[in-house]
Amino acid sequence: MVTNVSSFGRSGLFDWVVQRVSAVILASYTLCILSTLLLNPDMTYPEWQLVFDSFSMRFFTLLTLLAILAHGWIGMWTISTDYLTTRMMGGKGTVLRIGFQLLCIGLTLLYLVWGIDILWGN
């Protein structure tokens, strides 16, 4: 068995399931936002804020944020282990890959904190 420490769940099956479930969440959220906008064509900013006042909408948004971060991380990790490898780039492959992965982890955490702050901050 091929081992790997930096994949999301360290299991191909787990990552695969997360990838699919998060895709469904992302698709439903997109539909939800699109239909809100289409049903209220002349929505004002206060009305838009009202939409996000409800707990269910905030919860759904947070869930979507988590889904996009997990989905994105698995995708970025896959890209980095396809292309940023010693096989593809020689000796500097490993350094580049770890650097890229750290950057992605950093961005992921930043977006998480930022997103929570937007949703629940003052």
């Binding site: 068995m1 081992t3 790997n4 994949s7 191909g12 099956l13 990552d15 695969w16 896959t78 282990t81």
Partner: peptide, 11 residues
């Protein structure tokens, strides 16, 4: 169980 890792099948 030997195929379950992120590479063998899931690539």
């Amino acid at each position: 169980s030997e195929l379950e890792d992120p590479f063998s099948v899931f690539r």
